[in-house]
Amino acid sequence: MTKMVSVVFAVMATALIATGCIHFGGYRPVIDTYRDPNAFRVPQDERECRELAERSASKKTKAASRARVVLGDDEDQVVDSRFKRAFIDCMAERGHDVVE
């Protein structure tokens, strides 16, 4: 039983560490809710847009790799830039203003 608990703990710790590593540069947007009639939806929309933007940035990177496009040392910056653009576009489509 103790060994099983240790294995479960190790798997959970690894998962938490791994999800923290793919957090696209720690981007934390500022959302202007002053004239936002849907301000109550910001937390849910932010979660959904973040997920969509991560998938979009990852998909584009994989496509570039398959096409053998060399991104060089700036690959992380390109992925971060794609993530930010996709996130901002998603939030704007939902009626929220993102302050960069």
Rank of each mutant, 00 (worst) to 15 (best):
P37H: 05
C49S: 08
A53D: 05
K62P: 00
E75L: 11
R85S: 06
V69K: 04
A64H: 05
Q77I: 12
A63M: 14
V69E: 07
D36E: 08
R50M: 12
T33Y: 03
A57P: 01
R47E: 13
D89G: 04
R50I: 09
L52H: 06
Q44T: 04
F87A: 03
D80H: 14
D76S: 14
P37G: 00
V78H: 01
R82F: 02
V79W: 03
G72F: 01
K59G: 06
P37N: 00
A39P: 04
T61V: 08
L52I: 00
P43K: 12
R85C: 00
D76F: 10
A39K: 01
V79K: 02
Q77S: 13
R55L: 13
A39Y: 07
S65W: 09
S56L: 07
A39T: 02
V69Q: 05
P37L: 00
R66T: 13
V42T: 03
R50K: 15
K62C: 12
E54M: 15
R50F: 13
A63G: 08
A64F: 04
S81W: 07
N38H: 08
E46G: 07
R68N: 15
E75C: 06
L52F: 05
N38D: 08
R47A: 15
V70D: 02
K60L: 12
E51W: 09
V69T: 10
A57Y: 02
T61W: 01
V79P: 01
R82L: 06
R50E: 14
R55D: 11
R35T: 05
D76E: 15
S65D: 15
D89T: 10
F83Q: 02
A63H: 13
A39N: 05
S56T: 15
E46H: 11
A53V: 06
Q77M: 12
D89F: 03
